[in-house]
Each structure stands twice: as structure tokens, then as C-alpha cells.
Design a protein around this nucleic acid. Structure first.
Lengths: 157, 157
DNA sequence: CCAAGCTACTTCAAATATTGAAGTGACACA
DNA sequence: TGTGTCACTTCAATATTTGAAGTAGCTTGG
């Protein structure tokens, strides 16, 4: 089965994974969140080959996650920016960063810190229950499948 | 440049991506969070080929993200479970799910809902500033590179 | 007691994707 | 005229993934 079929699954994770769930897309997203806009910078900082970067940017463009816009004429040069849909992926990158800091850190100091523009506080983006305010870990959660999703999984037997 | 070199970057995102940043690892994680433990179930529900699943489980095992433990003798059969390190990846999967629900949903109803065991409330895991309590979006954040990280990026010029 | 089935894989050839190096075209700057 | 930059594309070599088939050890039904 190909991932193309997977994304037909009635599963939001599968669809998100289909859109951005590969090494280079994630690295490109990281770089875009860090502020790079140009092909060259994206290539240098992510380490992707130009071929691959070109492909990934096209794919992300087709998904509406990045926008390719000209920033000069003569010659036409393009830059890449996150759309709203792309910006909305920030929790994914933040979660990866956070996990990386906790479990794979090589340095005393985390390489990137995140500050909330509104209040100036340093943010460690821990998911928090909106209702009771407690931080949420995996063991604190119960996942519930919708009837439709349950039926689909049954059908895979 | 290979991703192996990328992960040497002083960057937590790169290291997390190196560990779990590919389609099948993410799908396997989704499945493990949904409660599957057996090779067979993982294969059926993720759609990965057995070859690939075997490789991925080995890789995730080597990273200490899943644990392979026998659940019966005669013959020895193993099941796969998330370690604490693996469980800690839940915000990543949650963020993907959330994004998928918002931007790629095909159904009226989200396929999986998440409930907080502690207070019973339904949780939409929006990152919230621990200081001021406001929900955090990408535009509300300022990213700051550590001096070390900054130096490394300079060196890549 | 024999055949069929289950689980957890492995093996293999064919298809597909990625890498690294080199090349291109349009211009700017000296 | 010559060098440099940017944003790619092209290409051959290499690596990975797929899909189908196979295997080993045991269980279950008749």
C-alpha cells in the first residue's frame, strides 16, 4: 500500500503525514519558521540537494503550505513563505523541537528559545488542558474513535 | 548532505526529525498511540509492508522509542510498546492530528477525539502560553537562536 | 493425527526516490 | 570582459521502497 492510499484513510494524522511527514519537508518547514525565504538559504541550512528542495517546495506549494512569490524582476526571483495553512503547522515543529531538546540534546543550552511576543515570557510549549489547566501527557489521555473511523478500522480486518 | 549529517547540527528539530521524521515512523507512532501492539495490527492499520515495518520498528527500538517485549513463549511472540521517550512524542502526533483536522478533514466529524482522563474534558491540544494563558500561534512567537546555534549557522555560509 | 491457519517475520526482484556533481540562464558588479 | 550570484535543472550512480512470495513454529478444528 502506498501512502497515497493511506491518506484516503479517515484519519487526520495520515493526511497531515501525507502532506508534511517526511524528513526534508520537515526540515524545510523548520527553516521557514526560522525565517529563511530564499532557495539558497533553504538549501544551505537544511542540507537538501537542490533537486530535492525544488521538488519539496513544489509539493508544499501544491498543498498550499508555502507560497512562491516573486521578490524582484530582471531576472524574476522567487521567495518562499509560509501561508496561513503553513504557519498553522508550527505546533508540529514546536513539538519536535521540544522533544529533541528533552531527549536528544547534545548541548547544555537549547539552540532555540521561544518567546511569546504578547507577554515576553519564554515559552516551553507544553500542551495544557484548556478545561482544568493541567499539563497533558500521553498517559492522561483517552482517545476515542468516531463511529466512522471505528467502522473503517473494522473493515481492514 | 545526508540526514545523518543534519542530525549533527546543533538543532533539536533536526534530531527529532532524524529519529521519527518519516512517513512510516509517524504512522507507526499513530498506531501505537491508538493502542496497537502487534506486528500484524501495525502492518494492517498503517499499510506498511512487513519489510519496512520490521525495519522501522528496529530503528525505533534502537532509538529507545519503542520497546520490544515478549508476550508469550512457545513460540516467542513480541509486542511493541512505547517507552517513556516514545510516549513523550505524543504532542507531535497530536499536532499533526490537529492540523489534519483543521486543514485536510474530509468528514464532518473528526475521526478521533481526545479526552483528558483527569477532568473528563474534551481536549483540543492548542499550545497555550504558560505565563499569560493565551493560545499561541506562529505569529505570536519570536524565535531566538543561542550563540552556539548562531555561530554554527554563520559557519555554513 | 493431519490439514489448515495464525503470527511474525525474511527474502527477492522490480520500481521508485535520493544523492552529488555538474550545468544553465539571466542578470549584477568591477 | 570576467567573475559572481541566484535559482534552479539535468544526469548517472546509489539507495530505498514496494509487492509478492516464502518460512518457521506453533495452534486449532475435524
Amino acid at each position: 500500500m502506498a501512502i497515497t492510499d493511506i491518506c484516503k484513510q479517515h484519519c487526520s494524522v495520515a493526511q497531515a503525514v501525507h502532506a508534511v511527514g517526511d524528513t526534508w519537508s520537515l526540515m524545510v518547514l523548520r527553516e521557514l519558521f526560522l525565517g529563511s525565504r530564499r532557495f539558497d538559504d533553504l538549501q544551505r541550512f537544511t542540507g537538501a540537494s537542490p533537486h530535492l528542495l525544488s521538488k519539496r517546495l513544489r509539493a508544499l506549494g501544491a498543498e498550499g503550505i508555502v507560497e512562491r512569490r516573486p521578490y524582484q524582476q530582471h531576472p524574476v526571483r522567487h521567495e518562499y513563505r509560509l501561508t496561513d495553512k503553513g504557519l498553522d503547522l508550527w505546533p508540529v515543529i514546536a513539538a519536535l523541537r521540544s522533544w529533541g531538546d528533552r531527549w536528544a540534546a547534545q548541548a547544555a543550552e537549547p539552540p532555540v528559545t521561544v518567546r511569546h511576543r504578547g507577554c515576553g515570557a519564554q515559552v516551553e510549549p507544553v500542551p495544557v488542558c484548556p478545561d482544568c489547566g493541567e499539563p497533558i501527557g500521553a498517559r492522561d489521555l483517552a482517545l476515542e474513535l468516531s463511529p466512522q473511523a471505528r467502522a473503517q478500522r473494522q473493515a481492514m480486518r
